[in-house]
Amino acid sequence: MGDRAPDNHSDVTDFILVGFRVRTELCIFLFLLFLLVYGMVLLGNISMMVIIMTDSQLNTPMYFFLGNLSFLDLSYSTVIAPKAMGNFLSEKKTVSFVGCVVQSFLFSLFIVTEGFVLAVMAYDRFSAICYPLLYSVHMSRRLCIQLVAGSYFFGWISSTLQVSVTFSVSFCASRVIDHFYCDSYQIEKISCSNLFINKMVSLSLSIFIILPTIIVITVSYIYIISKVLKIPSRQGRKKAFSTCSSHLGVVSVLYGTVSFVYLTPPRNPELRKVASVFYTLVTPMLNPLIYSLRNKDVKEALRKILVEKNVLF
């Protein structure tokens, strides 16, 4: 281990979130932009959960997972957006040490859990398309609950380990976090401790927790595509692909932006922040739109709710 400075994490009471390095007048614009996007996140995901919970026709494994996906989108965007918006209008832009720990933990918990839920959804589509006659047996209600519970369990394990090592280091160089939320990578950059253990933990989490979700999604879609291509009817192939395209689009946006932020060289910090906005706010906003606009069952359920509430005549 390297030499430790006399100050340690117990001496730090707060951090400064730099946010975006823009002129003061642009902070108002960013506040309004975040407010608009976050408002759409709330509206879209809450509506999606209400529709799924109230319509008995949507009492299927696919919509059970989709309801959990909406809850996770709503949760991790709520962990990030309100604090970021508050800092846009504040001169101090501070976050307490405890607040930073909580934000980092909850964001990691929800985003990692979402990765597992997306993998579970890929397996669900694999079962539905490749083994349609055994689908109801394979995807029983009990198994669906166990899969979601397991997703939260691994999300909790990952976030606990990540946050534990991140905030166990010494902060002697600076309290300034060059981001709009408490990102573990940026927090470690202001540490003066030896980060060997942190890097080993991050690598282990990537290999044993994150990588399996990518493998499950990839293998599932390889089987799905090979199965669909064997369907003789063009209409049948189109219908089969349509049930997967929404999920594949969500996976691509989420994993694409996360990979860009964490796997590319940090040449432009501001560009990385913009990319972070995509997976913290834009993706949770788009997910309900992607699934509702391309899903006849959801649109019909929404129409029935609006008719019952006398919104439509």
Rank of each mutant, 00 (worst) to 15 (best):
V228W: 08
K238C: 05
A173W: 06
V176I: 15
G236F: 06
H179M: 14
E188Q: 15
H179I: 05
T160K: 11
I209C: 04
P212W: 07
C192T: 13
S206G: 06
T213E: 00
K238V: 03
R237W: 11
K189T: 13
I197S: 05
K230D: 06
S220A: 14
L203M: 00
S159N: 11
K227T: 14
P232N: 04
S174C: 09
V165E: 05
S202D: 11
V169E: 07
I187W: 07
Q162H: 12
S158Y: 15
F180W: 15
I215W: 11
C172S: 15
E188P: 00
Q186V: 14
Q162C: 13
S164T: 09
V228S: 10
F208V: 13
R234V: 01
Q186M: 14
I224N: 04
Y223G: 00
F167L: 02
I190V: 14
I217F: 14
S174H: 08
S220G: 01
E188F: 00
S191I: 05
R234W: 04
L195N: 12
V216C: 11
Y185C: 05
H179G: 07
I197M: 02
T166Y: 09
L211I: 08
C172H: 11
I214R: 09
F167I: 04
K199A: 05
L195T: 15
I224K: 02
A173I: 11
K199M: 09
P212H: 11
Y185T: 15
I214K: 10
H179V: 00
G236A: 10
V228R: 12
R237Y: 10
S233I: 01
T160P: 03
L161D: 08
K199V: 01
T166F: 06
D178S: 09
Y185R: 14
T213G: 00
H179W: 13
F180L: 10
F167N: 02
C192F: 05
T213W: 01
K230I: 04
I207E: 00
G236N: 08
V219G: 02
T218Y: 13
Y221W: 13
L195D: 11
L211S: 10
N198K: 05
F196D: 05
A240G: 06
S206I: 01
V219A: 14
C182Y: 05
S204N: 07
D178W: 05
C182P: 06
L205C: 04
K239C: 01
V165P: 08
K227Q: 14
A240K: 02
F196L: 04
I231N: 07
A240C: 05
I225P: 00
N194G: 13
L195G: 06
R237E: 03
K238R: 12
P232Y: 03
I177H: 09
K238E: 05
S164C: 10
V216A: 15
Q162P: 02
Y181S: 11
V176T: 15
F167V: 05
S158F: 15
S158R: 04
F171P: 14
I207D: 02
S193M: 07
S204I: 12
D178C: 04
I224L: 00
N198F: 11
S191L: 07
D178R: 06
S220L: 00
S184Q: 14
L205P: 05
K239I: 01
N194Q: 08
P212G: 11
L211K: 12
I224G: 04
P232A: 08
I217S: 13
P232G: 03
C182T: 11
F208R: 01
L161S: 13
L161E: 12
K230L: 06
K238L: 04
